[in-house]
Simulated assay, not measured.
Amino acid sequence: MSDTGEEWQVARRRKGAARKSKSLQVSSASTCCQEQLDIGKTVKRIRDTVSELRCEEFWQEWKEQLLVAGSASLSKPPENKDTEDPTDQLEKRGEGRLSQQLECVCYGLGSFSSCVSARYQLAMLLLLLDAGQIPLKDCSVYDPAFSTGERDALKELGLTVLTENEEGKRVATKPTLFYLMHCGKALYNNLLWKNWSIQCLPLMIIIGNSFNGMRDRMIEREFERDYGYIRQAVDVCEERQLPCPSRLIDVFSDTAVITFPTSSLNRLPQSTWAEPPEPHYQHCPDLEIILRETQS
């Protein structure tokens, strides 16, 4: 591996607080980096990292878990008459292909041109897209930390770069892989709120921080008050921990595949889904999310 010891020092960060401090310096850091970024060199480094990860034993486990989760998500019948006919879905699905329906959204990747961890996470995303046969154009990515040069590099790779900060509030209208590596809890909570229904949750596959891990690291009262949708999701989601080699512990630690089986959701009372209130985080002094800029 060509990365120096200093590079790994840059990559090492404590979850949450370090990401927040990095994000607060987005404007100055991005302006500095975008003028110097060599797009071709950056894309080559990413592709070299993809090749490196492809040879790793733990990658095969990630691939298998994605295919299992994707197959389960695509096999779910529609929940109401307004959705597509299940026969049409089966015809589109084909022989084990996920690309016919599965799309991808990636939030919070970080500055992959300067951060080794972010580059490895981007390389893993590209591997997952290939394994799931998801066209690159069907993967939307966003992070306010991206410089202009990084956005150009992502477009060069074939990905779709979002221009608006959605704050995680995107509805899954079809089976969707959400790739949220080491993101703040508010981003997960917003995503769950926006999809808080028996129709939408089963369409979601999340690869990101373990919900159980979040619960274990927080005081239960504060977890329920500030991140109520994650707290409820812990009890109904299916979470499968993904392996991580020790040398990449800062890159892929505490990562899980999270899905929402319809059978588990159906056990909840109907009142669970009635007009879920939008979350607000007035009690969170260390909020780990960059909110969209509001017009004054």
Results as ranks from 00 to 15, higher is better:
residue 224 E to F: 14
residue 264 S to M: 11
residue 132 G to F: 02
residue 209 N to A: 07
residue 259 T to C: 05
residue 243 P to S: 00
residue 289 I to D: 05
residue 71 S to M: 04
residue 262 T to P: 11
residue 132 G to P: 02
residue 249 I to E: 12
residue 238 E to R: 13
residue 177 L to S: 00
residue 118 A to R: 00
residue 123 A to F: 07
residue 147 S to D: 00
residue 258 I to T: 13
residue 96 G to D: 09
residue 132 G to S: 06
residue 260 F to M: 07
residue 155 K to I: 09
residue 155 K to D: 10
residue 234 V to F: 02
residue 115 C to G: 03
residue 29 A to K: 10
residue 240 R to T: 12
residue 14 R to E: 04
residue 154 L to N: 01
residue 248 L to M: 11
residue 39 I to C: 02
residue 295 Q to F: 13
residue 136 L to C: 14
residue 278 E to V: 12
residue 214 M to Y: 14
residue 45 R to L: 06
residue 120 Y to N: 04
residue 66 L to F: 09
residue 17 A to S: 13
residue 163 T to R: 10
residue 133 Q to K: 15
residue 90 L to N: 12
residue 88 D to L: 15
residue 141 V to I: 03
residue 207 I to G: 05
residue 282 Q to T: 13
residue 145 A to F: 04
residue 126 L to G: 04
residue 119 R to A: 01
residue 27 S to E: 10
residue 211 F to Q: 02
residue 205 I to Y: 03
residue 261 P to V: 01
residue 80 N to H: 07
residue 194 K to N: 06
residue 213 G to N: 01
residue 11 A to E: 05
residue 263 S to D: 15
residue 276 P to E: 08
residue 157 L to S: 01
residue 293 E to K: 15
residue 206 I to S: 05
residue 217 R to F: 05
residue 255 T to C: 08
residue 222 E to F: 12
residue 18 A to E: 07
residue 154 L to M: 04
residue 67 L to P: 01
residue 251 V to A: 03
residue 18 A to Y: 05
residue 45 R to I: 09
residue 25 Q to V: 04
residue 97 R to G: 14
residue 288 E to V: 06
residue 121 Q to I: 05
residue 258 I to P: 08
residue 284 C to M: 10
residue 95 E to L: 15
residue 262 T to Y: 14
residue 244 C to Q: 10
residue 51 S to L: 08
residue 187 L to Q: 03
residue 140 S to R: 12
residue 94 G to K: 06
residue 232 Q to K: 14
residue 135 P to L: 10
residue 236 V to K: 05
residue 259 T to G: 07
residue 214 M to H: 15
residue 223 F to A: 07
residue 82 D to G: 13
residue 260 F to Q: 03
residue 34 Q to S: 01
residue 263 S to P: 11
residue 61 E to N: 09
residue 120 Y to H: 12
residue 225 R to A: 13
residue 225 R to G: 08
residue 111 S to T: 00
residue 89 Q to N: 12
residue 15 K to W: 12
residue 157 L to N: 00
residue 251 V to N: 03
residue 120 Y to P: 03
residue 158 G to F: 05
residue 266 N to M: 12
residue 288 E to Q: 09
residue 98 L to C: 11
residue 259 T to I: 03
residue 283 H to S: 10
residue 106 C to T: 03
residue 113 S to P: 04
residue 212 N to M: 07
residue 128 L to H: 02
residue 280 H to T: 14
residue 23 S to M: 13
residue 159 L to A: 00
residue 197 S to R: 01
residue 209 N to G: 10
residue 292 R to F: 06
